[in-house]
Amino acid sequence: MPVRVGIPRALLYYYYFPLWKEFLERLGAEVVVSDRTTKGILTRGVQHCVDEACLPVKLAFGHVQNLVDKGVDFIFLPRMVSVAHREYICPKFLGFPDMVKQNITGLPTVLDTAINQRKKQRDIHQFTRQVGAALGKGPIQSWLAFQRAWETHQKYMGLLEQGLLPEEAMSVLAGKEPKQTADNTDLTVAVIGHPYNIYDPFISMNLINRLRKSGARVLTADNLTEQMVNQGVKRLPKKLFWTLSRRMTGGAFNYHDQGKVDGIIHVAAFACGPDSMTGELIERFIRREGKVPFMNINLDEHTGEAGIVTRLEAFLDMVRWRRTAV
C-alpha cells in the first residue's frame, strides 16, 4: 500500500499543489488534501494556534488538524524560506512547521524539508533529494520526479496566465473541461491579495464569485506572467524582497498601467504585516494618478457578510457610475 501524504489546502496550496502532487506521486505516495475550509476547520485552527498569528496561519492549523483526522502517514509542510533569488517568503511560513509541531498533538511525521533558493535556483535539488530519501527513493529518481512535476507546474502556470483561477486550472489539469465563464460581464476588476486569502471562498466570503455574479470579470496577479509583474513593480524605487508582496504589488501596477481593469480591490488579512505595507504602497501609487478606482478590504475571523457585501456593491456602483460619466 502506498504511503499517504497529506497536503493542507491552505497557504501556498494555490501556487504549488499541482507541483507537489505530481512530485509526491512520482515518489510513490498517495496524496491526500484537506477538506475545503469550513467554520469547523477555522475554529479548530484558531483554538490551536498562537493568538498573534495572522488569519491564514490560523486557518492552515485547522487544515493540518483535518489531515491528522484523516490518518495520513506524513504531512507535507516544506519549510518555505525562499523561492526566488534574493527574495523571501514571509517568516511565518518559515516557522510554520515548528509552530505545528509544538502545538498539535498526535501528528504523523512532518516532512518539513527546507526550500531555500535565495542564493541559487538549483538549491532545490537538496530539497528533492531529502524528500525522496524520506519516502525511500534514491537521488536520481527524486530528481527525475521533480523534473516531471516541474513540467506540470509550468503547464499550470500557463493555464493561470490564460486567465483561469487556481481551482479552474487544477480541474483542467485533472482532465476536466474548462468551465465556460459567462459573458454577461460589463467590467473587469483586479483582485489583489495573497492567494490563500482571495481563492479560499470561505475566508474571502466568496468575494470572487460575488463579483462575478454582479457582472464583473475577475483578474488576479496570478493571471500575469512573471515578466509583466516585474514590469509593474519597476516603478518602485526599491526592490521588494517578499516574493508574494512583489507579485501583488507588481500585478496591481501592471493592471493599472496597462489600463486593462476598471477597478482594483486589495484584500488584506488582519494582522498580516506585509499586507499592511503593500496595501498602502499600492494605494498611494494608484491614488496619485487617480485613474482607476481602488478599494481595500480587510478580512478577519468574522463571518458577518454585510460589511463586505456593502463595500463590494458600492464599489461596483462607483465603477459603473464613473464609466457612464466619462
Binding site: P293, H302, G307, T310, R311, M318, W321, R322, A325
Partner: peptide, 13 residues
C-alpha cells in the same frame, strides 16, 4: 467629482 462618486471609504471593524 462632477456629480460622480470617484472614491469612498468606510470605517473598518
Amino acid at each position: 467629482r462632477n456629480g460622480v462618486v470617484t472614491d469612498f471609504a468606510m470605517n473598518t471593524v
